Structure formats: C-alpha cells, structure tokens
Amino acid sequence: MEKIILKGITWGHSRGLLPLQAYAQRFNELNPEVEIVWKKRTLQEFADFPIEELTKSYDLLIIDHPWVGCAAATSCVLPLDRHLPKEYLINQQENQVGRSHDSYFFGGHQWALAIDAATPVASYRKDLFEKNKTLIPDTWSGVLELAKAGKVAAPAIPIDLLMNFYMFCQFHGQIPFQSDREVVDHYTGLKALETMRGFYGLLDPQFFNANPIKVAEIMSSSDDYWYCPFAYGYSNYSRPGYARNILTYGNLVKYKDNQRLRSTLGGTGLAVSEFSANKDWALKYAQEIVSESNQIHEYTANGGQPGHRKAWLDERNNLLTQNFFSNTIQTLDESFIRPRYHGYLHFQDHAGDPIRDFLMGKLDADAVLEKVDKIYKKSKNV
C-alpha cells in the first residue's frame, strides 16, 4: 500500500513548528499509512508569496486571521463548518482565548482553527528588577521613566509599529477602521504618532530592525534591557532551559482612568487546502491537534502556545511557563481584531513603512497619515 504524504507549511520558530511536528509523529504512529511533513519559512516569506498560491502545493497551512477575507473570496481552503462536527466547533468557540476562534470566521464560514493564540504583552527580567530593587512598571508613565534610563526594549519593524499604531489610536480614543476613507481621523492619528515618537525616541535605534523574537532573544541573552512593554508573547522564553535567562510575562500597563493598553490580536490558525488530494486525512489531523485534550497536554508540552482556553488555565502549563498564560490572558481577552476584508493584507504589508520612517526622522506626521490612508484606500479599492 502506497503511503499517503500530507504537506504542511508553517513559520520558522520553535513555537510554530515543534508542536506540529510532534503531533505529526504521533499521528503517524496511530495511522502508519499517513506521513505528515511540515516545512517552515520566515514571516517575510509568508508576506512575499501569497497563501492562496501555497494552497496548491500544501495540504495544511498555518495562517494569520486577516487572510480569511481572501479565503472567502477565493475558496482555496475548506470551510471547516461543513466538514467538522458541530459540537467540536462549539467547544472551540466557547473556549477561545480572546476572540481567536471568531477571528477565523468570515463570510458565514469557519476558515481555520485557532491553533495558537498571541497578542503583544509585557515581558521583563524579573531577576534584574529584584537585583536592582526596582519596581516593575504598571503605568505608561512608569514605562517612559524606565525607557529614559535605557532599560526598555521593544520591536520596531514596520509590521509591529503598525500593530502598535492601532493600539495608540485607541489610547487616544478612536478604534481604527471605522471609515472606508481613512484609518483614523487626522487628530487621533497625529496624537498616536506623537505618543509613539515620544516612546520610540527613547529606545536604542537597533530596535528598528528587531521583531518580537529578536527582542526576546536580546532580553534573555544579556542584561542590557530589563523590560519590554509590548511585543507578541512567546511562552518559550518563560520556560527554564529554552534561553539563557527566563523572561516573565504580564498584562499591558495602565495609561489613564485605570485603563490598560489594548493590543492587536495575533496568533495563528490551521487551515486545510481545497486542493488537497487527501482532505479527510488533513481534516482528521487538524481536528485532533486543535482538540481540547491535545492543546492542554502535548501541544503545550512541545513548545506550543495553544489557542484553547482550558490550556491557558491549566495549572501544569502555568507551572511550566512561570504563569505566562494566567499572567497575560486578560490582555488577550481585551485585544483588538484586525480587519479581514479581501485586500487588507496589502495594507498591512505596506502601511508600517511610513510610520517607521516618521519615527526615524525621515517623514513628518501629516505625510505619514496621507500615505497610510492612500494605501488603505487602495486596499479597499476606494
């Protein structure tokens, strides 16, 4: 009997690869006729080669929730509500972290399962704060004071700056994308950019080339930086033995009226290609790896950051990660969901560039908002 081989595509980090490979091995032990091979690629490669093209070559795909508008428009992945048991999807919906499961529901269909949940959260070197007898910031003003002392790190590549621009627009009172003509009103946009310049201007310029993984690596491998106020969380760095020093994670700081910053939901979903020659096997693997039991146990144990709420509340998982999950779940529950219309990814791929240029002193604020809105209208075909 010829062996069935399923191909999957994911992103290149321990969190995004190892739990998929681990369950592929277990799946093969239970189903010897099926082998699942996972390939990794960089986040930039995901941006450079459209996922809809990848569906022609891969059976299983790890996706970002803003892509589901494209999924609905092209039907290149399976609507899982037509293939998975209703009670299974109800369990996923009732046990989501934040709105992770809902973020993959678009146009009346569920295009992926929330296999992984994340949003920007705070991280810090608890040992350094204790050694220096310094309090961990809990307010925005406290973050700025620590940044002035040169102890703060934060990712500042274009995509992360754009996600934080959404956050700072809400900081100043407006939720982005309420209009088809502009991302936010001009006043709010200027205030958000001004707040961002006040913060990023205090950081080492090296962070304009650092993503959240790079920041976590810098913070865990040296004693130069004690605190990061917002970067997509990675529970791996809170696990003993993963990096030289452990990072502790927590919710975002307060800024006014005791309100906390509201970050932008990330995480990933698992989708099944419409072009797969072995859809039933691909669906079986997807259903099992995102199941409540696997997410609580094997998925998390193998370095994953699960999408199922019971895994986040599990006592053993929190012991394993210095309470990463229980310490940050509030921020995930409060997080902002990006637009998912077909075309949004064009905006996301380009709108962070002028913000970065502004923060590096290459562009004025009015020009930034003009460029951002131009990109937005192009993405909406307005």
Results as ranks from 00 to 15, higher is better:
residue 82 R to I: 04
residue 111 W to G: 01
residue 177 F to I: 03
residue 225 Y to G: 01
residue 153 A to G: 02
residue 252 L to M: 08
residue 183 V to D: 00
residue 366 D to F: 11
residue 8 G to M: 00
residue 240 P to S: 15
residue 199 F to K: 01
residue 234 Y to H: 05
residue 312 W to N: 15
residue 331 T to V: 09
residue 23 Y to M: 08
residue 324 F to L: 04
residue 96 Q to A: 11
residue 144 L to S: 00
residue 110 Q to S: 03
residue 118 A to I: 00
residue 68 V to S: 03
residue 340 R to L: 14
residue 361 G to M: 05
residue 48 D to E: 13
residue 234 Y to M: 09
residue 37 V to G: 00
residue 369 L to D: 00
residue 162 L to Y: 08
residue 180 D to K: 12
residue 229 P to V: 07
residue 89 L to N: 03
residue 93 Q to T: 15
residue 210 A to K: 13
residue 46 F to H: 12
residue 324 F to D: 02
residue 298 E to L: 07
residue 67 W to Y: 12
residue 131 K to M: 03
residue 48 D to Q: 14
residue 375 I to R: 05
residue 111 W to D: 12
residue 197 R to N: 11
residue 232 Y to P: 02
residue 146 L to E: 12
residue 151 K to H: 14
residue 337 I to K: 08
residue 115 I to G: 01
residue 227 Y to G: 02
residue 364 D to W: 05
residue 211 N to W: 12
residue 288 E to M: 13
residue 168 F to Y: 14
residue 53 E to G: 07
residue 78 L to W: 08
residue 279 K to I: 05
residue 20 L to V: 00
residue 163 M to V: 12
residue 302 N to A: 13
residue 132 N to M: 08
residue 310 K to M: 14
residue 245 N to T: 06
residue 213 I to C: 07
residue 131 K to A: 05
residue 360 M to R: 14
residue 150 G to K: 15
residue 183 V to W: 05
residue 153 A to E: 03
residue 209 N to Q: 11
residue 141 S to L: 02
residue 20 L to I: 01
residue 137 P to D: 06
residue 172 H to T: 00
residue 261 L to C: 03
residue 149 A to E: 15
residue 80 L to F: 00
residue 236 N to W: 04
residue 97 V to L: 12
residue 102 D to F: 11
residue 186 H to I: 10
residue 317 N to Y: 08
residue 182 E to M: 02
